[in-house]
Design a binder for these strands. Structure first.
Length: 902
RNA sequence: GCCGACUUAGCUCAGUGGUAGAGCAUCCGCUUCACACGCGGGGGGUCAGAAGUUCGAAUCUUCUAGUCGGCACCA
């Protein structure tokens, strides 16, 4: 068999995914066991405009690891994929396309035509991320793929909206909202990011009092809004201004006469203690306006240019231009008192970074108080969902719910779910599931539908159950019964409020179930500079480039290895480690295959016949121990722990020691197949095969590639739930590990051998003995240890590059010119006539002795401490005693060695 | 301002009461017939600082310093 010397990821990656899909591995229906427990995960739907980024790659890897393992364990497993329609993003792309390709605006082609273009855009470009998910190896059930604008999901949206309206939980009203002038739509609080404008300024503007020489100075960061001022407010208790309350101000530039009002909201300490009030452009001013019955003057258009209310001088100017002009005018008039630098908070649109304009407008809202209580009660009564890690997410989640505000759900877009509300000629509103229903309610067909669509997150909020077929008309499906609640939601912390909390609320309200048991909150993969990846910073790491460079499997297991819950910086060095690991797996397998010589994978060989060697008992013990621990780790979502266990086991136990131990017996000239050799070969293949199964959830491609090459693999190795499916490692039974095969005595004996070999290697290296020179090793040890060494003499000789082992009672009579060492179980001397530098050897031993003595002193102090002996657990005291005794022996031996040298 | 997290080897990070770990980097030696994406061997940390609890603290408590995050406020 020709097997390339280095692993080529691309080759394996291109081969297996389509086959897995064809066999039906991704579908829960492949499970033949009617009594199988279910395991389900629903994907956080990536946005159709998106392409795969590192956050997806991390989350998808974790979901895939969880699902692949459960599937191998025989669970009826479903990982359901989908995408969301990304209202603003798609709208923006289509508007842009229209502009570039046809030079038209959406208004020019009309809503219907625009939506056709949008669907076409989605069909053409919306699948990119799905192809990328296939590349990742994501074991999702494509036959259950959902899109938030699918007919059934859209029906669910309408149903929920109408029901909420009927219960009074949806209302329409005029409020100050977050307005994005670029996208020309309202945004919810959660879609706004608070930035800080370090170059912000505080402008002190003087407003003359009517019929007086007095002026009142207000401070503002947004001077252009003064054009819409309808009052000046002061604190009622502010002595400085008491005499002005009730007076009239002549607003400069406009000549408008506006009152000075007293309001508790004003903080006398800040600025001048006098506040200009612009009710249509500031949420606090809006409230003040309501309290004092002030007019609400909107001075801007939807694109944040000034409108005609702002005055002829300003109309059409952009708000920032207007700001300059207002300030210039004030200066001209001598009314600009001063300008101070002032760091100001700057709300920006999360997507396009445009500065948000607080804006008075009429919108649809969802009342959150009662919805919130559903989620809060679930947390308080059932501690659900369970956040992992619990800190800080549980607390932050509760805190946010307690302070939740109503949710602005309308968006001034065309792409999305058009709000199911109709207006008659008088402006009465009818909220209904369909036009017909609305017409019936209205008693007329002369209705026009609300132009606005719903926030994309409104449909995402229903994702947990709408994906299983719930749409109001259909409320019960087989999938809903089987898979809801799902087992875990894997997501980043940025959408806990935006999405997770809302799914909890809506699922409880409309299905009466919780949506999921656990919420696994992943850390953020930071750029190479330790900062969050972002386009503007240019520090992004593209997962697809990493797939090309290191392979998908290496990228996946790397991501799993850094998934500790904390944010972590991207490391090219570390991912390289896992590329090397893949190559190591490849080459170890290559070795096993090249020497299989007719042997096959065979589970009998994992159970150990009588007379199995120490190394055999040891590797089986390690394998079972690791399998148990890997399962425990994954049950606790400790991916990094599972990876590190597997990495260490495969590389250091299996490759460094086990393969080296059996190498001579099965390779090279040993072609004659004795029974013993057949068993060893088969065992080697079987341990490899078990390792591949354990690794498969992390590294699906390389493990399948090798598994298919291994002799003796077939669907007989499948979990019983998949006994008739085509053979694939994907359906192989995930090793549980068997406590009974853990053999502590074999582990101790192997440790003894390893330590002996290591000590000899250490001597060789330190004494600079050429690799080709064989040494003689004198060993003084107890007779039961001697037996262990003798049994493994061939391996010891080979791995220590020795020609002979000489067993003695003591080392008293070994040649003076020997390098010496002590292990926990033996003293050794390696005669080095002519090669040894006595001074150097004395130094070496003295260093060693010093280390032992430090440790010895520490233990002595501990054991002499009566408190320790009385209060510490017995086993700890015992442990200290035996370590103490061991050290005592080592020190004694080393001293004798030193004496012999002097 | 409130809440939280983090601070461990040169670097990136594991490690929640009992002798400090990994990978990378570094140093020494190897064309040993699976693998130089490799093999063998070394060096390197008073676990941010201080106090406390404990027989015993990287680990628990408190304080201090620094870094970061979330929320609130901001005329």
């Amino acid at each position: 068999m020709e097997i390339p010397k280095a692993y080529n990821p691309q080759e394996a990656e291109s081969k297996h995914y389509d086959r897995w899909e064809r066999i039906g591995c991704f579908k829960p229906e492949i499970n033949e066991n009617p009594a199988a427990p279910k395991y389900s995960v629903v994907i956080p739907p990536p946005n159709v405009t998106g392409s795969l980024h590192m956050g997806h790659a991390l989350q998808h890897t974790l979901m895939d690891v969880l699902c692949r393992r459960k599937r191998m364990q025989g669970y009826r497993t479903l990982w359901l994929p989908g995408t969301d329609h990304a209202g603003i993003s798609v709208q923006r792309k289509v508007v842009e396309q229209l502009r570039v390709e046809e030079g038209k605006t959406p208004q020019e082609i009309g809503r219907e035509e625009f939506l056709k273009r949008a669907w076409a855009w989605k069909e053409k470009y919306g699948n990119e991320i799905l192809l990328q998910m296939r590349r990742e190896g994501a074991s999702v059930d494509w036959t259950r793929f959902r899109f938030t604008m699918d007919e059934s999901l859209s029906r669910a949206v309408r149903e929920v909206f109408v029901r909420l309206y009927e219960e009074g939980w949806v209302y329409r009203g005029k409020r100050i909202v977050n307005w994005c002038p670029k996208d020309k739509t309202v945004l919810s609080d959660l879609e706004v990011r608070e930035e800080t404008d370090k170059n912000g300024k505080l402008y002190y503007l003087q407003y003359p009092i009517k019929d007086s020489n007095e002026k009142i100075t207000v401070a503002t960061t947004r001077p252009e809004t003064m054009l819409g001022d309808t009052a000046v407010a002061v604190n009622p208790n502010d002595e400085r201004y008491k005499h002005l309350v009730g007076k009239v101000v002549v607003l400069p530039l406009t000549g408008r006469e506006i009152p000075v009002v007293a309001d508790e909201y004003v903080d006398p300490e800040f600025g001048t203690g006098a506040v200009k009030v612009t009710p249509a452009h500031d949420p606090n001013d809006y409230e003040i306006g309501l309290r004092h019955n002030l007019p609400q003057l909107l001075v801007m258009n939807e694109d944040a240019t000034m409108n005609k209310t702002a005055g002829t001088e300003f109309v059409g100017l952009d708000r920032f231009e207007a700001r300059k002009k207002v300030v210039a005018k004030f200066e001209e008039l001598g009314l600009l008192e001063k300008v101070e630098p002032h760091e100001t908070p700057l709300p920006v649109c999360e997507r396009c970074k445009t500065v948000i304009e607080p804006f008075l407008s009429e919108q649809w809202f969802v009342k959150m108080d009662e919805m919130r209580d559903l989620a809060l009660n679930l947390m308080k009564n059932e501690n659900s969902p369970r956040f992992i890690p619990e800190n800080p997410h549980r607390k932050v989640y509760i805190n946010w719910l307690e302070n939740i505000k109503d949710w602005t759900v309308s968006r001034q877009l065309w792409w999305g779910h058009q709000i199911p509300a109709w207006y008659d000629k008088k402006g009465n509103v009818y909220v209904a599931r369909t036009f017909e229903e609305a017409a019936e309610k209205a008693g007329t067909k002369e209705l026009t539908q609300e132009e606005d669509v719903l926030d994309t997150w409104f449909s995402s909020a229903l994702w947990a159950f709408s994906v299983f077929g719930w749409n109001g008309e259909v409320t019960e499906t087989e999938d809903l019964r089987t898979f809801l609640p799902t087992d875990v939601l894997v997501t980043g912390r940025d959408i806990i409020f935006l999405w997770v909390s809302r799914m909890v609320m809506t699922t409880l309200k409309f299905v009466g179930k919780k949506p999921f048991e656990d919420v696994l909150v992943t850390g953020t993969v930071l750029g190479r500079d330790g900062k969050p990846m972002s386009k503007s910073r240019g520090n992004g790491v593209d997962p697809l480039e990493m797939f090309d460079k290191y392979g998908v499997d290496a990228t996946r297991i790397y991501l799993a290895a850094i998934a500790t819950g904390a944010d972590i910086r991207w490391s090219d060095k570390l991912i390289e480690t896992y590329r090397n690991f893949a190559n190591k797996i490849w080459n170890a397998s290559r070795f096993c295959l090249m020497n299989s010589n007719g042997a096959e994978v065979n589970s009998e060989s994992l159970r150990l016949e009588d007379g199995a060697s120490i190394a055999d008992r040891w590797i089986i013990s390690r394998l079972n121990k690791i399998a148990i621990k890997v399962n425990e780790s994954l049950d606790k979502y400790e991916f990094h722990e599972a990876v590190s266990l597997l990495y260490h086991f495969f590389w250091h136990d299996f490759c460094d020691w086990y393969i080296e131990f059996v190498k001579d017996e099965i390779s090279g000239g040993n072609d004659g197949s004795t029974d013993k050799q057949r068993v060893v070969r088969s065992r080697l293949l079987s341990v490899l095969e078990q390792s591949l199964r354990l690794l498969h959830p992390f590294m699906p491609f390389i493990t399948e590639e090798i598994w298919q090459m291994l002799p003796g693999t077939s669907n007989k190795l499948h979990n019983p739930a998949y006994k008739s499916a085509e053979a694939t490692i994907m359906l192989a039974d995930y090793p549980k590990g068997n406590e009974e095969l853990i053999d502590e005595s074999a582990e101790r004996q192997m440790q003894m051998i390893i330590e002996l070999i290591s000590k000899v290697r250490n001597i060789r290296a330190e004494m600079q003995i050429k690799p080709s020179d064989r040494v003689v090793v004198h060993i003084a040890t107890a007779s039961e240890n001697r037996k262990v060494f003798e049994e493994n003499q061939a391996q010891i000789l080979k791995l220590a590059r020795a020609e002979k082992l000489i067993f003695l009672e003591t080392l008293a009579n070994t040649p003076k010119a020997s390098a010496r060492a002590v292990t926990a179980d033996a003293e050794i001397a390696v005669p080095l006539e002519g090669l040894i530098d006595f001074q150097k050897e004395i130094m070496r031993l003295e260093n060693q002795l010093k280390k032992y003595q430090n440790e010895y002193e520490r233990l002595r102090a501990q054991l002499e401490n009566a408190n320790f002996v009385e209060k510490a657990p017995v086993e700890k005291v015992e442990q200290a005693r035996s370590q103490f005794a061991e050290l005592e022996a080592k020190i004694k031996a080393l001293r004798q060695n030193l004496e012999a040298l002097k």
